[in-house]
Nucleic acid binder design. Structure first.
Lengths: 261, 261
DNA sequence: AACCAACGGTTCAATTAATGAACCGTACAA
DNA sequence: TTGTACGGTTCATTAATTGAACCGTTGGTT
C-alpha cells in the first residue's frame, strides 16, 4: 500500500455518524502514527479536502470536495440515473432499497429509498458498514480482486450479532456462493431482525464498484418474498451497471485481477 | 511538497472543461513523470476518487467523491448558506456574482448567480482560473501565506490579455493593495471587456479559503458603480465568512502564517 | 493543588518508499 | 515502412516517509 493510499484512507474514515475526528482518534482508526497522520492531514488540508475546526482542533471533510463532486456529477451524472432505478426497486418490493459504494475496507451507503411501510429498515446516508457482515459487502467481495478478499479475510471478523460469520473459511464459502448466484444474502448477520439481499454493480472499470441491496425486517421474509426480491435486486443491479457504463458480462472473467495493476 | 500533496494535485486538474484526461496528458499538466502519475492514479482509483474509461483509457473523477461531498454537505452545509447571499449580491448589483474556492494553484468557480441583464458576464461552473489574472485570485493571495504568494510569483505569469500583470514585483504591489483595501480589482486582466471586483472569505481555519466576486462588462463600469459593487462584495464576503465559521477580524493578524504548519 | 493521562503537535536519525530514464507493445498518420 | 505518441512497466538510484521520544496544554481524579 502506497503512501498516497494510506493518506486517502483517512478520508474514508469520515461519515455522517463520525463527521469530525481529532488527530489521535484518526491515527488510532487508521492505525498510523500520530506524526504520519498529521502530515497526511496537512497535505489533505492544503487542497481543501479536510479542514480543521480552530476551536476543537478536530478535523472534518473540506469544501473542495464539493467542487470535485460537482464536476463529476455534471460531466458524468450518476445520482440522476441511479435514483429512479432505486425508487423502482423500492416500489416493486415495498422494502427499503439502498445503493452502496466501497470505501476503503467498508461499504458506504450513498443513496437510500425507504420502504413506505411503517415497520421498515431505516438506514443512515453516508454510513460505513463492514464488508463481512452485510449482503452488500459480500456481494462486492464476490467480484473483488483475490488480493482484496484475502486482505479482508486476514483481518479479525468482528461479530455484530450472534449470526455474524467470523470464520474466514466459512466466509470465503459464502463469498463463493454469492459469486455463483450473482447475489448475496445476509440473514441477521449485521443486525438482529434485518435480512439483506444484495447484488454487485459494475462501473466503467472492470471490477465491482459497489452494490445495490434490499433490506427487510426478518419477520416479513418468506421463501417467496425472498425470491421475488432476489430477482428484483438482480434486475436493478444490471440496470445500474448499464447506466454506469459497466459491462456485466465481464463479471465472470475479470473478478480475479487486481484493480489497475 | 509531499508525495501526498503531489498526488492530490492530480484531482485539481479535473474541471468541467477538462473532465477526462489521458495518462500522458495528466503527467504533462502536473509536471510529473508518467510512471509517477500512473501510481498516483492507481492509488486514487483504489479509493474511487478517479476511474478510468476502459475504452478510451482516459481518467476521470470517481463516484466516491459523491459520498464525501454528501457527508460534508449534510454535516456542515455550505451551499444552502452561501447561495442566498450570492443571490442577494447578484440582485443588489444586477451583475453576475460568483463564489470561488482555491484549488491547488488556481481558483475554482463553485457557485454562480448570473446577472439578469442580457449583456452579462457568463461563467462556467467548476472552471479553474489562474490566481494572478483574476480579482478572486488576487483577493485570495492577499491573505494567503507568504510562502504561497512567493511560490505563485516565482512561476511565469501567463499573460491572458494585454492588461494582464506579468511582472512579479508589480503583482506583489497589487496583492498588497488588495490586502490594505480588503478587496481586489481586476480590470480586463483575465479577459477583455470584463471587470472584476472580489473579496476574500475565510472558513473555520485561519487563512482565506476562497473569494466572492462580481464580474461586470467593462462598458458598465463607472467610478460610482464600482464603488457600489465594492461595498456590496465586501458585505457579502463578511456574511459568507460568518456562515463558514471564519473570523474576519483575524484577517490582519494571521495572513502570514503557513497553513497548518 | 498535585497528579496523571490524553490531547495536538514537533523533531530527526533510521528506514523505506518514491522516482524517472529507459523500456515494451500498440495504434495511428504520413 | 517509418515515425510518433500513446498507456503501461521495470528497477537501480534517490529522496521522502516514518515513528519513538519529545514538548506544552487541557481536563478530570484523588
Amino acid at each position: 500500500m502506497s503512501t498516497v493510499d494510506r493518506a486517502l484512507t483517512l478520508l474514508d474514515l469520515f461519515s455522517e455518524s463520525r463527521p469530525e475526528s481529532g488527530l489521535s482518534e484518526l491515527a488510532r482508526l487508521a492505525g498510523y502514527d500520530k506524526a504520519t497522520t498529521r502530515r497526511f492531514l496537512v497535505a489533505l488540508g492544503n487542497h481543501g479536502y479536510v479542514e480543521q475546526d480552530p476551536e476543537s482542533r478536530k478535523y472534518r471533510l473540506g469544501a473542495a470536495l464539493l467542487r470535485l463532486a460537482n464536476v463529476r456529477e455534471t460531466t458524468f451524472p450518476v445520482t440522476d440515473l441511479v435514483l429512479p432505478i432505486l425508487n423502482r426497486l423500492r416500489d416493486s418490493t415495498a422494502e427499503t432499497a439502498h445503493f452502496s459504494l466501497v470505501a476503503g475496507n467498508s461499504m458506504a451507503t450513498v443513496m437510500i429509498a425507504e420502504s413506505p411501510r411503517a415497520n421498515r429498515v431505516s438506514l443512515e446516508q453516508g454510513e460505513r458498514l463492514p464488508l463481512h457482515s452485510t449482503a452488500s459487502g459480500i456481494a462486492w467481495l464476490a467480484f473483488a480482486p483475490d488480493k482484496t478478499v484475502q486482505r479482508i479475510l486476514a483481518k479479525p471478523l468482528k461479530p455484530l450479532t450472534s449470526k455474524t460469520e467470523t470464520d474466514p473459511e466459512r466466509l470465503r464459502k459464502q463469498i463463493e456462493t454469492a459469486r455463483v448466484n450473482g447475489f448475496a444474502v445476509a440473514d441477521q448477520s449485521h443486525e438482529d431482525d434485518v435480512h439483506g439481499i444484495a447484488a454487485p454493480v459494475f462501473n466503467a472499470n472492470a471490477h465491482s464498484s459497489g452494490a445495490i441491496a434490499v433490506a427487510t425486517p426478518v419477520s416479513r421474509v418468506t421463501p417467496e418474498t425472498a425470491q421475488q426480491i432476489q430477482m428484483a435486486v438482480h434486475q436493478a443491479a444490471l440496470e445500474i451497471t448499464n447506466v454506469l457504463g459497466g459491462e456485466p458480462h465481464k463479471i465472470f472473467t475479470n473478478a480475479n485481477k487486481e484493480a489497475g495493476q
